[in-house]
Amino acid sequence: MLSIKNLHANVEDQNILKGLNLEVGPGEVHAIMGPNGAGKSTLGYVLSGRDGYEATAGNIDFSGTNLLDLEVEERAQAGLFLAFQYPVEIPGVSNMEFMKESVNVIRKARGEEPLSAAEFLKKAKAAAKQVNLPLDFLKRGVNEGFSGGEKKRNEIMQMILLEPKLCILDESDSGLDVDALQVVANGVNSQRDGKRSFIIITHYQRLLDYIKPDFVHILADGKVAKSGGPELAKEVEKTGYAWLEKAGEKAE
């Protein structure tokens, strides 16, 4: 599904990713952990195609196409979804009209018929209910006046509606209390169908108690420093990331 080879990327002329490799197969859940500044969020932005996050070397294959050749919206239409860490507020654009237009653009890209207003509303209501957002949030401006937790849940609601192939969650757990964390995790787990893949970017192990990853990767200094199974996340919880520096010193 996703194959990242030797990815180098710059943010404002600063080299952040330095030869990152990652293979994500269909239906797999990969957790990306690592200390602040390791390049976790940069990876999410480079994958989604944000301006200013420039891949300088390496390649990314997404289901047979070169992801780096695609515009932001083409990546979304191809089935890539990024749940943002800090979703932007867009007053004046209602959540509902935004999602309806997005869902239908993506359905069109998949060769499906657009949803009627009634069909969409039914799905939207079900998705809102699933992430525990009151229905009037559909009518409100996109993320306008939402709390941090509501914004995160709104991202998960969008993910459910857009039915992507690959979901990247950028610190969707940060700033959440246990209840909200559970809602986010349930939303993600409900979308696990054996084909859809997930990249869960997180600083802490906490979210992984609720979303069981197949693989855990520790990112440090723009590269995968260590990969393993779920037990690696537990190890991080116990020892923190200090061992990375020691490992780095040893290597130098």
Partner: peptide, 27 residues
């Protein structure tokens, strides 16, 4: 960028944002 990351073309997103600019007061 946010709207485009959900599949909308740049021109679609611009229409939505521009109109949102006055829609906010209408609502």
């Amino acid at each position: 960028y946010y709207l485009r990351s959900r599949g909308l073309s740049a021109s679609q997103a611009k229409v939505m944002l521009s109109f949102g600019f006055i829609q906010e007061l209408i609502t």
